[in-house]
Design a protein around this nucleic acid. Structure first.
Lengths: 217, 217, 217, 217
DNA sequence: GATGAATGAGTCTTCATTCAT
DNA sequence: AATGAATGAAGACTCATTCAT
């Protein structure tokens, strides 16, 4: 046995070929991108693992080394888009004083738009699919509720600030207003996905229209 | 007794075994109910035909004699719930003068609730799944857009009435307000399905809260 | 109970509606025609009972009252065409003296053509399918062999007549010649069905060509 | 020993699991053999994919990775046997001078026999089934016609050689003779498959018998 | 670590046949 | 006798996942 050969064998048994953490993260993201592309095109369950594998340009084994099974990939695809969106929205609530309701909503929707518009597809559709999936997937539902609960809380805080400033009726229940604004945001996502003719400005404009005048008939 | 006799003769000369139209309609509805139950429990594509067949208590062949294939059953399940809902909502717009925005929205949401609450399940979930499916099913998307377009038009007409009465800013674009209110309705469905803690009143209350006071900071 | 009613009931239990034998035979033929049409279009096993039922313009029950099951219908369709063909060909052998080989073959092929050309389809195709089916259906194979055995015998008798007249080499084995001529007839059916450019005259002409001259190279 | 070492390193850098082309071809042939066995036993459409899968000793998925669907497998089974047979027959026409008609026919039939006799079954039956299938399968019919057209052309060339040598009447139409000889070959296949008592020699003998003597009655 | 061929349980759908009316 | 709705076993095909190389 020659020295050169020994070296080689050493290489064989040494865990050197380990991919760097960064490389791993990139690969994972590559798979998630492929999954998003396929999911938004075909839906969560009508997409096959093979669709995703081919879209990612990897081998089956490779994909399965990043995600244990399809359910986990679905979960990751939905929650990642959820958390990514949260990350975009959170800073909007960090300001000392929130802008007027219609402006806050517009900013949130713009954040949604800027985060969801991927090259070639639209993450809003993933949200839509995710909501449907949450009906049957307890884990996802739990994650989702937690995330939205937090979001609602932040909106409610803004509402209270508005109430202090007289922008919103002090007698209103802040929680109801928060639920209403969250519905507006969710509804925007649906309407944009289904009808296709939506822009954040329309909602801002509509919201201003409703809340401006106030004489009873 | 000639009655019994007549019956027999009727049988003799009438090659009957054709099922009555009413019976057919009932059977169809029975299958649709089974499909709704399964779909809202498992999602559109994760539900198997066998699930539906067993839930309906029929044979495979029987189900397939009412719906050509799974896609058609999905289409029927979604569009039927869509049109059923329309039927509930349309009368609300038939009145000479619409109630105030928050009241109209509350009534619409109540109609949604009363239509969607089936024994044991909730058609709002079907709507959610239907929106997701519309992303990949052109026919469904077309049907859905037509239906919602009409709905929007009716809301816009109410908005114009409100503008005449000074309830809504006359300078607002009625279409934007209509889009906003539709978003609110869609969003309510999502939030109710995902979070589970919604009632029409919350939205009515929240909407009133937003629109009452009006002094800038 | 009125008298009229009794009469009616009498009618009910009396086996009057019995269809006449002739009517029955006509119905049977109607079904066979439908089966032939479907079989030659789609093949024996790719044809469904429903195809035949619809083609015959009858109900499932009606068809099943004439043929116990699909296998029996296949058997009847093939053997009927077989025996029908036999009936056409037999008279050709009844003459005291057979015409020359090429003429006998031509006549047989013409009989095949005239029997098989139905309006809109071609029973030669049924023969083709029948031969294939005989590979797996013992009963059909037995029937077929018997029929062809008899046919061969009649050809062999003609061959012996030819040999007495010096038209065929007296040293030849009559059975071999008979087998050869039968092959020619079968082959014509195949070639006509597959290639589509065949006429009895071509075979007669070819046969004459082969058998005329006789100098070795 | 560095040999073992080299091997390992080769494995390390070469992402192999792709099956070799030869292995693939073998697998394909294994499936085709299984299909032939099943088809000739049960017919094309009465054979189930499961029959073939079990006969091949493979899994469903494996078979489907070689043939897209049943129709493609049928097509491949028939055309492969067609082209395999062609390959056997073509050399017989490559000689400068064709043997006498009965000898050429005998040689062709012997080639048919030697090619079609597989261990345990007989490809002639596949030909029979293929002819039936060609009635309903346009693609197969096209392939088949092309192949037989070419075959006919080669026979016609032999006929012309015979005519130059005075073996066949110079006045005969070479095409008719070719069609006749092709019919003889097809018919042999049918008669052998259906009656079971055929040998190439019988046809050769019969053909000689017909063509030897020539005095009219 | 990486590959992609192989597996086989599971899915959709058809269709021969029956039988209540 | 006649009908055609209903049955459900069986067939074609897919696809998530594994594992030998």
């Amino acid at each position: 046995m020659s020295g050169a050969c020994k070296e080689r064998i050493f290489v064989l048994f040494n865990p050197v070929p380990k991919i760097s953490d960064q490389k791993r993260a990139e690969r994972r993201q590559q798979i998630l991108n492929a999954a998003w592309t396929c999911f938004q095109r075909e839906g969560l369950h009508a997409t096959t693992m093979d669709d995703i594998i081919r879209q990612a340009g990897l081998s089956a084994g490779a994909v399965y080394s990043y995600f244990k099974n399809k359910d986990e990939l679905i979960l990751a695809a939905v929650t990642t888009s959820l958390s990514g969106l949260s990350a975009q929205v959170v800073p909007l609530f960090a300001r000392e004083k929130p802008p007027r309701p219609e402006d806050l909503v517009r900013e949130i929707l713009q954040a949604v738009e800027s985060f969801t518009a991927r090259d070639g597809f639209d993450l809003k559709r993933i949200a839509l699919l995710g909501w449907g999936e949450a009906q049957r997937n307890e884990k996802l539902r739990g994650l989702m509720r937690g995330s939205y609960q937090m979001f609602r809380g932040q909106i409610a805080a803004s509402v209270q600030a508005w109430q202090r400033d007289g922008v919103v009726d002090a007698a209103a229940k802040a929680d109801d207003v928060a639920k209403t604004l969250l519905a507006l945001i969710f509804g925007y996502v649906v309407e944009a996905a289904v009808m296709g003719d939506m822009k954040p400005d329309y909602i801002a404009s509509g919201l201003r229209g409703i809340s401006t005048s106030r004489a009873a008939g």
